[in-house]
Design a protein around this nucleic acid. Structure first.
Length: 84
DNA sequence: TAGCTGACGCAAA
DNA sequence: ATTTGCGCCAGCT
């Protein structure tokens, strides 16, 4: 695993329930400012449930995509009380 | 090593 | 409010 993924996964894992963070924010917190796209690529390849990748949304507030279906992602966020 | 890709971001039209 | 174009970074071919 790359240093990059370790950091990113750690940050995403730390996102509390009911809260969301943009890809750009995650990248920044991970120590790789500007690597928003790379973060997305990583999430795409990550199937670990211990990483709430559905809490990572776009900077414009929209949900973005999800490996289990975009609609499902929105559902999950709703269950956590995240307003769309 | 060089080029292509994509769960993004943002300014401009 | 929308759509378009360009930049961005890590990963894979």
């Amino acid at each position: 695993m790359s240093d990059f993924s370790e950091k990113v996964l750690a940050v995403v894992r730390a996102i509390p329930r009911g809260q969301v963070m943009s890809y750009g924010e995650v990248a920044k917190q991970a120590g790789y400012p500007g690597a928003a796209r790379a973060v997305g690529s990583l999430m795409k390849q990550n199937y670990d449930d211990s990483v709430p990748c559905h809490r990572v949304v776009r900077a414009d507030g929209r949900a973005g995509r999800y490996n289990r279906g975009d609609a499902n992602k929105i559902e999950l966020l709703r269950n956590e009380g995240v307003k769309l």
